[in-house]
Amino acid sequence: MAKRKISPWIKAALDWGPLVVFFIAFNRLKDGTYHIAGTDYSGFVVATALFIPMIAASTLVLWRLTGKLSAMQVATLVLVLIFGGLSVWLNDPTFFKMKPTIIYLLFAGILGAGLVRGKAWLQLVMEEALPMQHEGWMILTKRFVGLFLALAVANEIVWRTMSDTVWVDFKTFGLPIILVGFIMAQTKLFERYGIEKPGEDPAE
């Protein structure tokens, strides 16, 4: 399937829509217990059950619209299906709370394995949007490995020591803010190692 561009607003809605739905559902259902098919479920588990088909549908739509999915999107979907499914099946939110930890450790491990081989695999998923010299990609990849390891530790601390409400707020708002802040903090790196796109006028 050929790659196609879509509106940034549509992409943002597909990327963040399921998480917003989970956040709203959790806050509406968190104080209740829901009897479904002979079993009592917490609001957290019910919100998780809503989140799973939402992210599966949004990922499918994104693939149909763009003709591609990044390795990060595929890995996230698979882990949501596995750990979210376990939380619903076993009626235990612990598995879903562990999902971000597993995702960040997985990403850190993959990027770290590339660094050992002298390769910046982050470049494969970001080069089109951010042309940069190889040395710059190596530095950025090392920083992302450190970030992902730190986020994995942070997620473990939050879900193990704080309330469900705090963890949901951290997942919905804290993690995205940290990621955006981290990328913005790399401005000097982008300026130093950035490469002009073909046909781009440096005077513009």
Score class of each variant (00 low, 15 high):
163 S>P: 10
145 V>L: 03
83 F>R: 06
6 I>R: 00
137 W>C: 00
126 M>Q: 10
190 F>D: 01
106 L>P: 13
64 R>A: 12
200 E>Y: 05
175 L>G: 10
91 N>E: 07
110 I>V: 12
5 K>T: 13
133 Q>A: 14
34 Y>F: 12
61 V>R: 08
120 A>E: 03
162 M>I: 01
148 F>N: 15
16 W>P: 02
195 I>R: 12
133 Q>C: 08
161 T>P: 03
200 E>W: 02
127 E>A: 09
88 V>Y: 10
104 Y>M: 15
88 V>Q: 09
173 F>T: 05
204 E>Y: 10
200 E>K: 04
133 Q>R: 15
106 L>R: 15
79 L>R: 01
173 F>Q: 05
85 G>K: 02
202 P>W: 04
8 P>W: 04
75 A>K: 06
154 A>Y: 12
164 D>V: 04
90 L>W: 11
167 W>Q: 14
101 T>R: 00
4 R>K: 13
81 L>C: 11
14 L>N: 07
138 M>S: 05
160 R>Y: 08
141 T>L: 02
128 E>T: 04
175 L>D: 08
74 V>Y: 03
48 T>M: 13
55 I>V: 13
140 L>F: 08
124 L>T: 11
112 G>I: 00
120 A>W: 04
17 G>H: 02
150 A>F: 04
189 L>H: 03
67 G>V: 01
96 F>I: 14
60 L>G: 09
41 Y>R: 08
143 R>Q: 09
167 W>D: 12
95 F>N: 12
124 L>A: 13
186 Q>A: 11
144 F>E: 11
4 R>C: 10
164 D>S: 06
143 R>A: 04
15 D>A: 13
99 K>T: 11
8 P>S: 03
12 A>H: 14
124 L>H: 14
201 D>H: 09
141 T>E: 04
137 W>I: 00
47 A>G: 10
99 K>V: 08
138 M>A: 03
17 G>T: 01
110 I>Q: 00
182 F>H: 10
112 G>S: 08
105 L>G: 07
142 K>I: 03
